[in-house]
Design a protein around this nucleic acid. Structure first.
Lengths: 152, 152
DNA sequence: AACAAGGATGAGAACGATTATCGCGTGATA
DNA sequence: TATCACGCGATAATCGTTCTCATCCTTGTT
């Protein structure tokens, strides 16, 4: 059986053409598209697709742990079929989100462990994001540097 | 001259009772209130205060680098008069945001430096957030653990 | 192959945080 | 104190996200 179909079945999700197309699209991209970008892309193969279905499908996939939902301080969320935690680079100019390295750097894992030990909290996940200007936007950003532009 | 007044003046902001009250409120709290919480609190001393003014004041303070605006994946932003970067703990149940330690742990600074050196990006800021359940909500969260509940 | 049950889809609207507009009032400087 | 740009507050627009509901389709079973 198709491995993607199996993943959806194993997650307890009914397999529909829409879900297959959306999940395949996410698995085949290296980017971190927004729901809107996903909708526009998948509409090329399923013209009648509604944005609503895309959104709910993404939420279902997230709930089942098949995709990761990223909130990197932009106006809208992004989605990633790579569910391992990793470091994200966020462009302050064009909004692009890239990965740094392939997996969680040791120091992030160490800090997460330290927080688990030293705080009274029941920590489940952690995220590290770096904000700046991507290679294509480097020239743009220098002029609009403001001391308060930091996020979190 | 009052040091708070001086800070506002130095930032190029006109000193108004509203701004003074909002900034003082932020300086005196250890929490990370939302704009709405700030508005409700400051209204006790300035009843006619509008939410709009609070919001625009917070954005002005952020632009001048006097406060930090936090986006930790919740439905609304939070504000913090501590402009040094530090690690945030975010409760998945009650939404509370706390600080871990007083300053940026060395490993976060190290990783940020590594990213600056090893990537093609012009990195300006970085953020580290850990998500879980605060001491008051620990019991609540255990039952609703889902593998896809991670943020970023 | 056909059926029943329950989830999925798609259209539309609701929701809520954030942002923009605009006339009036007020702080800052001379 | 006069002047003027800026801040204030009310209102509405924007936009991502979520909800509702009737219809359709997948799934497990006859």
């Amino acid at each position: 059986m198709d491995t993607i179909v199996k993943k959806l079945r194993d997650a307890g999700l009914k397999v529909t053409p829409q879900r297959l197309a959306i999940y395949k699209m996410l698995l085949s991209t290296k980017g971190h598209p927004t729901a809107d970008e996903i909708c526009r892309t998948v509409k090329e193969s399923i013209p009648g697709l509604s944005f609503n279905t895309v959104y709910k499908t993404l939420l279902s996939l997230e709930e089942k742990g098949l995709v990761q939902r990223l909130d990197v301080g932009q106006d809208c969320d992004r989605f990633d079929a790579n569910t391992r935690s990793h470091v994200h680079l966020v462009c302050l100019n064009c909004g692009k989100v890239s990965d740094f390295g392939d997996d969680t750097p040791a120091c992030v894992a160490d800090l997460t462990g330290r927080i688990k030990r030293e705080s009274d909290w029941d920590i489940r996940t952690a995220s590290f994001a770096a904000y700046g200007y991507c290679p294509e936007c480097r020239g743009t950003g220098g002029t609009e540097l403001t001391p308060g532009a930091s996020r979190a």
